[in-house]
């Protein structure tokens, strides 16, 4: 692999996306969301100097949780399928550049674009909150940004896996939206149903819930914004007792990184080795 080519593709992807008006829209949405999260959770909304991880903050985390995966998985989903559909991919491949370089370059380029959007969004919100005034330390804020970035990486990676299998952007979007819905709601609903029907124990519920990267993100956000696991009930207590505060954090981060690397790695294999032809 040639770093020069990877950088070139990265720059092309980032440049094209940054010019896109969707990028502006995402960023505005992120900013608004982040501003509200900050205002209502760690830094704002308080009584007698006390603040808590209230419902409002929670529902805003919820919005972030809906928003970031959707954008990331669709961005990933159309990344390669769109070029395939437009025919620009075979044309690009007729030049002395390899599929490895294209894949890696595209992923990094789009990841950077989404990360830029997240940074800008949270950054603008942070500037706003700083001017309005806040107290306390900013590590929760930074961890939230980091978690959002990881969540975006996860779903971008899943999107790429969808993309290498799709010949058409529309098909990729369809599959992406379905997977998004699955991760956001259907999967959890299934686990809840199973728990009620089969009376699953704490360990099983914990394990099943953490299969889902969005659930991992949520648990980690709760840990960041409200440093107690009791809020998650017996399962949270089990997690803290078994792994410790630090351990749970490492576990959650590992799962998010795992969910980034596995679909990405498999997508890479499919794109560069298993699916060798671009007609």
């Amino acid at each position: 692999m040639d770093t020069k080519n990877i950088l070139l593709i990265m720059k092309k992807e980032a440049g094209e996306s940054l010019k896109n008006r969707w990028f502006v829209l995402y960023t505005i949405c992120f900013s608004a969301l982040a501003l509200l999260v900050l205002l209502f959770s760690t830094m704002g909304g308080d009584i007698a100097g006390y603040s808590g991880f209230g419902r409002t903050a929670a529902s805003l985390i919820n919005l972030v949780l809906l928003f970031i995966p959707l954008i990331a998985i669709i961005t990933g989903g159309v990344s390669i399928s769109n070029e395939r559909e437009n025919g620009t991919l075979p044309y690009l491949l007729s030049h002395p550049i390899s599929k490895n370089e294209i894949f890696v370059g595209k992923f990094l380029g789009l990841l950077i674009t989404i990360w830029f959007s997240i940074l800008l969004g949270f950054g603008l919100a942070g500037v706003g909150v700083a001017i309005i005034g806040q107290q306390g330390d900013i590590s929760g804020y930074l961890l939230t940004v980091l978690l959002s970035a990881l969540l975006a990486a996860c779903f971008l990676s899943i999107g790429f896996l969808v993309s290498v299998y799709s010949g058409k952007a529309s098909k990729a979007i369809g599959i992406s939206v379905f997977l998004w819905l699955f991760f956001i709601i259907l999967g959890d609903l299934g686990i809840m149903g199973t728990t009620v029907a089969m009376d699953l124990g704490i360990k099983q519920v914990f394990a099943l819930a953490l299969l889902n990267p969005t659930e991992v993100f949520k648990v980690a956000s709760v840990l960041v914004l409200s440093p107690r696991f009791e809020i998650l009930g017996p399962v949270g207590v089990y997690a803290i007792r078994t792994f410790g505060q630090q351990g749970v954090f490492y576990l959650l981060f590992s799962i998010l990184i795992f969910w980034t690397l596995i679909p990405l790695g498999y997508g890479y294999l499919v794109f560069t080795r298993l699916r060798r032809e671009e007609k």
């Binding site: 919820n62 609903l189 809840m192 728990t195 914990f206 956000s221 809020i231 998650l232 009930g233």
Partner: peptide, 20 residues
């Protein structure tokens, strides 16, 4: 649900809770 099945409390603040 979570009052009856406390293990499900792990899903608080998830979109699935909103969906329900």
């Amino acid at each position: 649900l979570i009052d009856s099945y406390p293990n499900l409390r792990v899903f608080v603040f998830s979109p699935v809770a909103q969906a329900i």
